Deep mutational scan, measured.
Amino acid sequence: EEWMVEKALMVRTGLGARQIESYRQGAWIEGVHFKRVSPSGESTLRGTTWYNYPEINKFIR
């Protein structure tokens, strides 16, 4: 699984929702560690946020 939603990321990493938000707003790079995608497939600020687990795992190492 490369891309996953927040709940799956929480299960895989043990991070809480606030921790994920903090990383997203600070250290993680949009387009690398996470992306927002609307149902139409376009990038957007209001779409579902998807997280790239392999890239996040590399960051944590």
Rank of each mutant, 00 (worst) to 15 (best):
I29P: 00
Y23E: 02
L45V: 12
W50P: 00
R18P: 08
R61I: 14
I20P: 01
R36K: 12
F59T: 05
E2F: 08
F34D: 00
W28L: 02
G41F: 07
G26M: 10
K35L: 09
G47N: 10
S38Q: 12
K7Q: 12
T44S: 13
A17I: 11
V5H: 11
E2K: 07
R61Q: 15
A27T: 08
F34R: 01
V37F: 08
V32S: 03
R61P: 04
P39M: 12
Y51I: 01
Y23C: 08
H33G: 00
T49F: 15
I56H: 00
G47E: 14
Q19W: 04
R61A: 13
R12C: 10
Y23F: 10
R46N: 15
Y23N: 04
P54C: 11
S40C: 11
M10T: 06
I56L: 02
W28T: 00
I29V: 11
L9Y: 02
G26A: 09
Y53I: 05
M10V: 06
K35N: 04
Q25S: 10
R18I: 10
R12E: 05
H33W: 02
A17G: 06
G14H: 05
I60S: 03
V5N: 15
K7T: 13
M10I: 09
Q25H: 10
E1P: 09
L15F: 04
M4L: 11
N57D: 15
G31W: 05
V32Q: 06
T49Q: 04
T13R: 00
N57K: 14
W50N: 03
V37C: 12
P39R: 09
A27F: 11
R46P: 15
R18K: 14
W3H: 00
G26N: 14
I29M: 06
V11H: 12
L45P: 10
V37W: 07
S40K: 10
G16F: 07
N57H: 12
V5R: 12
W28Y: 00
R18M: 11
Q19Y: 04
R36I: 15
R12K: 12
H33L: 02
E55P: 04
T44W: 10
P54A: 11
A27L: 10
S38V: 14
L15A: 01
A17H: 12
M4Y: 04
L15W: 06
R36V: 15
G16P: 07
E55Y: 03
P54V: 14
V37L: 09
I56Y: 01
Q19T: 06
E2Y: 08
K35F: 06
V37R: 06
G31Y: 05
S22L: 14
K58M: 06
I20Y: 00
Y53F: 12
M4E: 03
G31T: 03
N52S: 05
L45H: 12
R36E: 14
G47M: 11
T49W: 15
V11E: 15
K58A: 10
T49C: 08
M10Q: 07
P39I: 13
S22G: 09
Q25P: 02
V5T: 15
V5K: 12
Q25A: 11
W50I: 13
V11A: 15
Y23Q: 03
M10F: 03
R36N: 15
T48E: 15
I29F: 05
R61F: 10
R18A: 15
G16H: 12
N57A: 15
E6L: 15
T48Q: 12
R46G: 15
Y23A: 04
A27P: 11
V32M: 05
A8D: 15
Q19I: 06
P39K: 09
G26Y: 13
E21D: 07
I60Y: 04
S38Y: 14
E21P: 01
E6S: 06
F59I: 05
L9C: 02
T13W: 02
L15D: 00
P39C: 11
M10E: 05
Y53E: 04
T48V: 14
I60K: 03
E30Y: 08
F34Y: 13
W50Q: 05
K7H: 12
E30M: 04
I56M: 00
K35T: 08
E2T: 10
L15M: 07
M10A: 06
N57M: 15
E2D: 11
P54T: 15
E1M: 08
M10C: 05
E21T: 06
K35A: 06
I29W: 03
R24G: 03
R36L: 15
W3P: 00
E1S: 10
N52R: 02
E21M: 08
H33Y: 02
H33P: 00
F34Q: 01
R12Q: 08
Y53S: 02
G31S: 04
G47Y: 13
S43I: 09
G41L: 07
I56V: 08
S22P: 01
M10D: 02
A17N: 06
K35S: 07
T49E: 06
E42Q: 10
G47W: 13
I20G: 01
Y23L: 10
E30V: 05
F34G: 01
G47Q: 11
K35Y: 06
S43H: 10
I20T: 01
G26R: 09
I29S: 05
I20D: 01
L15T: 01
R18N: 11
V37M: 10
G16W: 05
G41A: 09
S40E: 14
S43L: 09
Q19E: 14
A27G: 09
Y23V: 02
S38W: 12
R46Y: 13
E42D: 13
Y53C: 03
V32E: 04
R46T: 14
P39N: 13
E55S: 05
V11N: 10
S38G: 13
I20Q: 00
L45W: 06
E6V: 09
K58V: 06
G14W: 03
E6C: 11
L9W: 02
S38D: 13
E42S: 10
A27C: 14
F59L: 07
K7G: 10
G26I: 08
A27I: 12
R12G: 04
S40R: 08
F59P: 01
S38A: 13
T13G: 02
Y51R: 00
L15N: 00
E6N: 03
L15H: 01
K58L: 08
I60T: 04
G26W: 12
G31E: 05
A27K: 07
I20A: 01
R12T: 06
S43M: 09
R12D: 02
A27H: 10
W28E: 00
Y53A: 04
M4I: 15
V32T: 06
I20C: 02
E55A: 10
T44H: 12
S22C: 15
T49D: 06
V5G: 14
I20N: 01
V37G: 09
L15P: 00
S40H: 11
N52G: 01
P54F: 12
T13A: 04
E2R: 06
E6T: 05
M10Y: 03
I60P: 03
I56N: 01
T44V: 10
P39A: 13
A8Q: 14
N57G: 06
I56P: 01
T48F: 07
N57R: 13
G41K: 08
I20M: 04
F59R: 03
R36S: 14
R18C: 13
T13L: 07
T13Q: 02
G16S: 15
E42H: 08
L15Q: 01
W50G: 01
E6H: 06
W3C: 02
I29G: 02
G16Q: 11
R46D: 15
G31H: 04
L45M: 12
K7W: 11
G31L: 04
F34V: 03
L15G: 00
R61Y: 09
P39F: 10
R46W: 12
F34E: 01
K58F: 07
P39Q: 12
E1V: 08
W50Y: 13
G41N: 09
W28F: 04
L9Q: 00
G31I: 03
V5C: 12
M4R: 01
R18Q: 14
E21R: 11
Q25E: 14
W3L: 01
E42M: 08
E21I: 07
F34T: 02
I56A: 01
Y53W: 12
W3F: 02
T44G: 14
R61D: 10
E21A: 12
E1Y: 09
E6Y: 06
R36C: 15
I60V: 06
A8I: 11
P54W: 09
T13F: 05
E55L: 08
E1N: 10
T13P: 01
E6D: 05
V11W: 10
Q25C: 09
A8H: 11
I29R: 06
V11C: 14
R61E: 14
W3V: 00
F59N: 03
S43Q: 10
E21Q: 10
R46I: 14
A17Q: 11
Y51C: 02
I56R: 00
Y23D: 02
N52I: 02
E2G: 08
K35C: 09
G16V: 09
H33I: 01
G47F: 12
G41S: 10
R24K: 10
